[in-house]
Protein backbone atom coordinates (compact mmCIF):
# COMPACT_ATOMS: atom_id res chain seq x y z
CA UNK A 1 0.00 0.00 0.00
CA UNK A 2 1.43 3.37 -0.90
CA UNK A 3 0.52 6.74 0.45
CA UNK A 4 2.30 8.87 -2.06
CA UNK A 5 0.67 12.22 -1.72
CA UNK A 6 1.71 13.32 -5.15
CA UNK A 7 -0.87 11.60 -7.30
CA UNK A 8 -3.29 14.14 -8.66
CA UNK A 9 -7.02 13.64 -8.73
CA UNK A 10 -8.59 13.39 -12.19
CA UNK A 11 -9.21 16.79 -13.74
CA UNK A 12 -12.44 18.59 -13.05
CA UNK A 13 -14.62 19.64 -15.95
CA UNK A 14 -13.91 23.18 -17.10
CA UNK A 15 -15.28 26.04 -15.05
CA UNK A 16 -18.11 27.01 -17.39
CA UNK A 17 -19.44 23.44 -17.35
CA UNK A 18 -19.50 23.44 -13.54
CA UNK A 19 -21.11 26.86 -13.61
CA UNK A 20 -23.88 25.74 -15.95
CA UNK A 21 -24.50 22.58 -13.94
CA UNK A 22 -25.03 24.53 -10.76
CA UNK A 23 -27.06 27.20 -12.50
CA UNK A 24 -29.53 24.84 -14.11
CA UNK A 25 -30.29 23.18 -10.78
CA UNK A 26 -32.45 26.19 -9.97
CA UNK A 27 -35.68 26.01 -12.04
CA UNK A 28 -36.67 29.61 -11.31
CA UNK A 29 -33.30 30.76 -12.59
CA UNK A 30 -33.90 28.91 -15.84
CA UNK A 31 -37.22 30.73 -16.19
CA UNK A 32 -35.34 33.97 -15.57
CA UNK A 33 -32.91 33.08 -18.33
CA UNK A 34 -35.77 32.38 -20.74
CA UNK A 35 -37.46 35.69 -19.91
CA UNK A 36 -34.15 37.48 -20.30
CA UNK A 37 -33.67 35.87 -23.71
CA UNK A 38 -37.15 37.04 -24.72
CA UNK A 39 -36.38 40.62 -23.67
CA UNK A 40 -33.15 40.51 -25.67
CA UNK A 41 -35.01 39.10 -28.67
CA UNK A 42 -37.54 41.90 -28.36
CA UNK A 43 -34.78 44.47 -28.30
CA UNK A 44 -33.05 42.88 -31.31
CA UNK A 45 -36.20 42.46 -33.38
CA UNK A 46 -37.40 46.02 -32.80
CA UNK A 47 -36.32 47.24 -36.20
CA UNK A 48 -37.29 44.04 -38.07
CA UNK A 49 -40.83 43.32 -36.90
CA UNK A 50 -41.96 46.87 -37.13
CA UNK A 51 -39.55 49.07 -39.05
CA UNK A 52 -39.85 52.78 -38.81
CA UNK A 53 -40.04 55.27 -36.00
CA UNK A 54 -42.03 53.91 -33.04
CA UNK A 55 -43.24 57.41 -32.37
CA UNK A 56 -44.90 57.84 -35.76
CA UNK A 57 -48.64 57.60 -36.27
CA UNK A 58 -49.41 54.04 -37.29
CA UNK A 59 -53.18 53.84 -37.26
CA UNK A 60 -56.42 55.16 -35.78
CA UNK A 61 -55.84 56.44 -32.24
CA UNK A 62 -56.96 54.13 -29.43
CA UNK A 63 -57.41 50.99 -31.51
CA UNK A 64 -57.73 48.11 -29.01
CA UNK A 65 -55.36 45.13 -29.40
CA UNK A 66 -56.06 42.25 -31.79
CA UNK A 67 -58.43 44.33 -33.97
CA UNK A 68 -56.17 45.63 -36.66
CA UNK A 69 -53.23 43.42 -37.66
CA UNK A 70 -51.29 46.43 -38.80
CA UNK A 71 -51.06 47.31 -35.09
CA UNK A 72 -51.49 43.98 -33.27
CA UNK A 73 -51.32 45.38 -29.75
CA UNK A 74 -53.36 48.43 -30.53
CA UNK A 75 -52.48 52.12 -30.63
CA UNK A 76 -52.40 54.88 -28.04
CA UNK A 77 -54.23 58.16 -28.04
CA UNK A 78 -51.85 59.61 -30.65
CA UNK A 79 -52.19 56.57 -32.89
CA UNK A 80 -48.72 55.20 -32.09
CA UNK A 81 -48.21 51.45 -32.34
CA UNK A 82 -48.01 49.89 -28.86
CA UNK A 83 -46.14 46.77 -30.07
CA UNK A 84 -43.51 48.87 -31.73
CA UNK A 85 -43.19 51.00 -28.58
CA UNK A 86 -42.76 47.92 -26.40
CA UNK A 87 -40.06 46.49 -28.68
CA UNK A 88 -38.10 49.74 -28.95
CA UNK A 89 -38.66 50.32 -25.24
CA UNK A 90 -36.86 47.01 -24.55
CA UNK A 91 -33.77 48.47 -26.22
CA UNK A 92 -33.86 51.61 -24.13
CA UNK A 93 -34.53 49.72 -20.91
CA UNK A 94 -31.73 47.22 -21.49
CA UNK A 95 -29.33 49.94 -22.55
CA UNK A 96 -30.10 52.01 -19.47
CA UNK A 97 -29.96 48.94 -17.25
CA UNK A 98 -26.56 47.81 -18.51
CA UNK A 99 -24.84 51.18 -18.69
CA UNK A 100 -26.18 52.49 -15.39
CA UNK A 101 -25.14 49.23 -13.70
CA UNK A 102 -21.65 49.45 -15.17
CA UNK A 103 -21.32 53.03 -13.93
CA UNK A 104 -22.59 52.13 -10.46
CA UNK A 105 -20.39 49.04 -10.16
CA UNK A 106 -17.31 50.84 -11.45
CA UNK A 107 -17.64 53.66 -8.92
CA UNK A 108 -18.61 51.22 -6.17
CA UNK A 109 -15.70 48.86 -6.82
CA UNK A 110 -13.07 51.58 -6.86
CA UNK A 111 -14.31 53.31 -3.72
CA UNK A 112 -15.08 50.10 -1.86
CA UNK A 113 -11.76 48.50 -2.82
CA UNK A 114 -9.69 51.50 -1.73
CA UNK A 115 -11.61 51.86 1.54
CA UNK A 116 -11.53 48.15 2.35
CA UNK A 117 -7.92 47.54 1.37
CA UNK A 118 -6.23 50.53 2.93
CA UNK A 119 -8.52 51.06 5.92
CA UNK A 120 -7.60 53.86 8.32
CA UNK A 121 -8.25 57.44 7.24
CA UNK A 122 -8.79 56.47 3.59
CA UNK A 123 -11.64 54.29 4.75
CA UNK A 124 -13.00 57.00 7.02
CA UNK A 125 -13.06 59.66 4.31
CA UNK A 126 -14.53 57.42 1.62
CA UNK A 127 -17.16 55.96 3.90
CA UNK A 128 -18.30 59.37 5.14
CA UNK A 129 -18.77 60.39 1.49
CA UNK A 130 -20.71 57.19 0.86
CA UNK A 131 -22.88 57.87 3.87
CA UNK A 132 -23.57 61.38 2.62
CA UNK A 133 -24.95 59.84 -0.55
CA UNK A 134 -26.86 57.21 1.38
CA UNK A 135 -28.65 59.73 3.58
CA UNK A 136 -30.35 61.35 0.57
CA UNK A 137 -33.21 59.20 -0.76
CA UNK A 138 -32.17 57.75 -4.10
CA UNK A 139 -35.05 58.99 -6.11
CA UNK A 140 -34.91 62.52 -4.75
CA UNK A 141 -31.25 62.70 -5.67
CA UNK A 142 -32.04 61.32 -9.09
CA UNK A 143 -34.71 63.98 -9.63
CA UNK A 144 -32.28 66.67 -8.55
CA UNK A 145 -29.56 65.40 -10.89
CA UNK A 146 -31.96 65.15 -13.83
CA UNK A 147 -33.28 68.61 -13.07
CA UNK A 148 -29.71 69.95 -13.19
CA UNK A 149 -28.37 67.97 -16.13
CA UNK A 150 -31.50 67.84 -18.27
CA UNK A 151 -33.44 64.82 -19.44
CA UNK A 152 -31.28 63.55 -22.25
CA UNK A 153 -31.05 59.77 -22.20
CA UNK A 154 -27.25 59.80 -21.61
CA UNK A 155 -27.57 62.05 -18.57
CA UNK A 156 -30.44 60.02 -17.17
CA UNK A 157 -28.37 56.86 -17.42
CA UNK A 158 -25.38 58.50 -15.78
CA UNK A 159 -27.57 59.92 -13.03
CA UNK A 160 -29.05 56.50 -12.28
CA UNK A 161 -25.52 55.11 -12.06
CA UNK A 162 -24.50 57.90 -9.69
CA UNK A 163 -27.38 57.28 -7.28
CA UNK A 164 -26.85 53.49 -7.17
CA UNK A 165 -23.16 53.06 -6.38
CA UNK A 166 -23.34 53.22 -2.59
CA UNK A 167 -24.60 49.69 -1.91
CA UNK A 168 -21.99 47.96 -4.11
CA UNK A 169 -19.30 50.17 -2.57
CA UNK A 170 -20.24 48.96 0.92
CA UNK A 171 -20.35 45.41 -0.31
CA UNK A 172 -16.95 45.55 -2.00
CA UNK A 173 -15.50 47.18 1.09
CA UNK A 174 -16.78 44.37 3.31
CA UNK A 175 -15.39 41.73 0.93
CA UNK A 176 -12.03 43.48 0.80
CA UNK A 177 -11.82 43.81 4.54
CA UNK A 178 -12.30 40.10 4.99
CA UNK A 179 -10.06 39.11 2.08
CA UNK A 180 -7.13 41.43 2.79
CA UNK A 181 -6.28 39.49 5.94
CA UNK A 182 -6.08 36.19 4.08
CA UNK A 183 -2.78 34.46 3.71
CA UNK A 184 -2.77 34.57 -0.06
CA UNK A 185 -2.66 38.36 0.11
CA UNK A 186 0.31 38.15 2.47
CA UNK A 187 1.84 35.67 0.06
CA UNK A 188 1.48 38.12 -2.81
CA UNK A 189 2.94 40.95 -0.73
CA UNK A 190 5.81 38.70 0.16
CA UNK A 191 6.51 38.16 -3.53
CA UNK A 192 6.80 41.92 -3.93
CA UNK A 193 3.55 42.46 -5.80
CA UNK A 194 2.45 46.11 -5.88
CA UNK A 195 -0.69 47.35 -4.10
CA UNK A 196 -2.54 48.04 -7.35
CA UNK A 197 -1.90 44.52 -8.59
CA UNK A 198 -2.94 43.05 -5.24
CA UNK A 199 -6.21 45.00 -5.28
CA UNK A 200 -7.19 44.28 -8.86
CA UNK A 201 -5.52 40.97 -9.66
CA UNK A 202 -5.52 39.15 -6.33
CA UNK A 203 -8.44 40.34 -4.26
CA UNK A 204 -10.97 41.65 -6.77
CA UNK A 205 -11.53 38.36 -8.62
CA UNK A 206 -12.31 36.76 -5.28
CA UNK A 207 -14.65 39.57 -4.30
CA UNK A 208 -16.58 39.53 -7.58
CA UNK A 209 -19.23 36.80 -7.13
CA UNK A 210 -21.48 38.71 -4.71
CA UNK A 211 -21.01 41.86 -6.77
CA UNK A 212 -22.07 40.11 -9.97
CA UNK A 213 -25.16 38.89 -8.19
CA UNK A 214 -25.91 42.33 -6.86
CA UNK A 215 -25.42 43.82 -10.32
CA UNK A 216 -28.58 42.04 -11.43
CA UNK A 217 -30.46 43.81 -8.65
CA UNK A 218 -29.07 47.19 -9.69
CA UNK A 219 -30.00 46.45 -13.26
CA UNK A 220 -33.62 45.79 -12.27
CA UNK A 221 -33.67 48.90 -10.07
CA UNK A 222 -32.23 51.08 -12.86
CA UNK A 223 -34.97 50.01 -15.22
CA UNK A 224 -37.56 50.80 -12.59
CA UNK A 225 -35.98 54.18 -11.87
CA UNK A 226 -35.96 55.11 -15.54
CA UNK A 227 -39.60 54.08 -15.84
CA UNK A 228 -40.48 56.11 -12.78
CA UNK A 229 -38.74 59.18 -14.24
CA UNK A 230 -40.52 58.72 -17.54
CA UNK A 231 -43.81 58.27 -15.70
CA UNK A 232 -43.27 61.67 -14.12
CA UNK A 233 -42.70 62.99 -17.66
CA UNK A 234 -39.02 63.61 -16.89
CA UNK A 235 -37.78 60.93 -19.29
CA UNK A 236 -36.26 61.60 -22.68
CA UNK A 237 -39.29 62.31 -24.93
CA UNK A 238 -37.34 61.37 -28.05
CA UNK A 239 -37.27 57.68 -27.22
CA UNK A 240 -40.09 55.23 -26.79
CA UNK A 241 -39.59 54.00 -23.27
CA UNK A 242 -41.87 51.82 -21.20
CA UNK A 243 -42.16 54.42 -18.49
CA UNK A 244 -43.15 57.08 -21.05
CA UNK A 245 -45.84 54.80 -22.40
CA UNK A 246 -47.30 54.13 -18.96
CA UNK A 247 -47.13 57.81 -18.10
CA UNK A 248 -49.09 58.75 -21.20
CA UNK A 249 -51.41 55.75 -20.90
CA UNK A 250 -52.40 56.97 -17.46
CA UNK A 251 -54.57 59.66 -19.07
CA UNK A 252 -56.72 57.02 -20.76
CA UNK A 253 -56.46 54.39 -18.06
CA UNK A 254 -60.24 53.92 -17.80
CA UNK A 255 -61.13 53.83 -21.46
CA UNK A 256 -58.06 52.11 -22.88
CA UNK A 257 -56.19 50.35 -20.03
CA UNK A 258 -54.03 48.33 -22.45
CA UNK A 259 -51.98 51.47 -23.20
CA UNK A 260 -50.54 51.31 -19.69
CA UNK A 261 -50.93 47.60 -18.95
CA UNK A 262 -48.91 46.20 -21.85
CA UNK A 263 -45.70 48.18 -21.14
CA UNK A 264 -46.34 47.53 -17.45
CA UNK A 265 -46.26 43.78 -18.06
CA UNK A 266 -43.05 44.22 -20.03
CA UNK A 267 -41.44 46.00 -17.06
CA UNK A 268 -42.63 43.39 -14.60
CA UNK A 269 -41.29 40.50 -16.68
CA UNK A 270 -37.95 42.19 -17.33
CA UNK A 271 -37.36 43.05 -13.70
CA UNK A 272 -38.49 39.56 -12.70
CA UNK A 273 -36.07 38.03 -15.17
CA UNK A 274 -33.19 39.98 -13.66
CA UNK A 275 -33.94 39.00 -10.10
CA UNK A 276 -34.39 35.32 -11.03
CA UNK A 277 -31.17 35.54 -13.00
CA UNK A 278 -29.47 37.01 -9.96
CA UNK A 279 -30.69 34.20 -7.77
CA UNK A 280 -29.37 31.62 -10.24
CA UNK A 281 -26.03 33.40 -10.41
CA UNK A 282 -25.90 33.37 -6.64
CA UNK A 283 -26.38 29.59 -6.58
CA UNK A 284 -23.81 29.09 -9.29
CA UNK A 285 -21.15 31.48 -7.99
CA UNK A 286 -21.49 30.93 -4.24
CA UNK A 287 -22.27 27.21 -4.10
CA UNK A 288 -21.39 26.96 -0.43
CA UNK A 289 -24.11 29.29 0.79
CA UNK A 290 -26.80 26.69 0.20
CA UNK A 291 -26.50 23.38 2.04
Amino acid sequence: MTFADTEIAPPEPPRYVMFWRRYKRNRAALLGLVLFAIVILMALSAGIVDPGDPLRRAGEPLTPPFINWETPLGTDQLGRDVLSGVLYGARISLMIGVVATLVAIAIGVVIGALAGYFGGWVDDVLMRITEAFQTIPNFVLLLALVAIMGSKIEWITLAIGIVSWTAPARMVRAEFMSLRGREFVDAARNLGVSNTAIIFREILPNALPPIVVYASVIMALSILMESALAFLALGDPNYASWGNMIGQGRAVLRTAPYCAVIPGIAIVLTVLSFSLLGEGLNDALNPRQKK
Binding site: E183, D186, A187, E202, N206
Partner: peptide
Protein backbone atom coordinates in the same frame (compact mmCIF):
# COMPACT_ATOMS: atom_id res chain seq x y z
CA UNK B 1 14.62 48.38 -1.82
CA UNK B 2 12.21 46.18 0.06
CA UNK B 3 10.67 44.80 -3.10
CA UNK B 4 14.11 43.83 -4.33
CA UNK B 5 15.04 42.30 -0.97
CA UNK B 6 11.89 40.21 -0.81
CA UNK B 7 13.42 38.00 -3.48
CA UNK B 8 15.83 36.61 -0.92
CA UNK B 9 13.41 35.78 1.85
CA UNK B 10 10.31 33.77 1.13
CA UNK B 11 7.62 32.34 3.33
CA UNK B 12 5.63 29.11 3.37
CA UNK B 13 2.32 29.60 5.12
CA UNK B 14 0.42 27.45 7.56
CA UNK B 15 -2.87 27.01 5.78
CA UNK B 16 -2.26 25.78 2.26
CA UNK B 17 -5.86 26.51 1.29
CA UNK B 18 -5.85 30.11 2.41
CA UNK B 19 -2.40 30.96 1.10
CA UNK B 20 -3.08 30.11 -2.55
CA UNK B 21 -5.34 32.48 -4.45
CA UNK B 22 -8.30 30.24 -5.37
CA UNK B 23 -8.86 32.02 -8.68
Amino acid sequence: ELRALRKHIQIVFQDPMASLNPR
